[in-house]
């Protein structure tokens, strides 16, 4: 967590931007749930999609050639 100290000004500015009504910026990033939901959805969709592609490509016993 060392690198975080360097980012503090950015984080503060961000927090201030995202929560203009907050009385004091605490240095913590607030909100951002959109990013979180998107990430989880993306992960599950990718893994599910890959699983489906593996099922579609499954080796079939009968070859009609």
């Amino acid at each position: 967590m060392h690198g975080l100290t360097d980012l503090l000004p950015t984080l503060l500015a961000q927090a201030a931007n995202q929560a203009p009504s907050a009385p004091l910026p605490t240095g913590r990033i607030t909100g951002g749930w959109g990013y979180v939901w998107f990430s989880y959805a993306l992960t599950f969709l990718t893994l599910a999609g890959y699983g489906v592609s593996l099922w579609v490509r499954r080796p079939r016993p009968t070859k009609d050639v």
């Binding site: 984080l11 913590r28 990033i29 951002g32 990013y35 990430s39 989880y40």
Partner: peptide, 16 residues
């Protein structure tokens, strides 16, 4: 719990 610094965004780590 949300991370002390990064708040809820840090939850992305559990997938990443």
């Amino acid at each position: 719990p949300p991370d002390r610094m990064m708040g809820d965004v840090q939850r992305i780590m559990y997938c990443h």
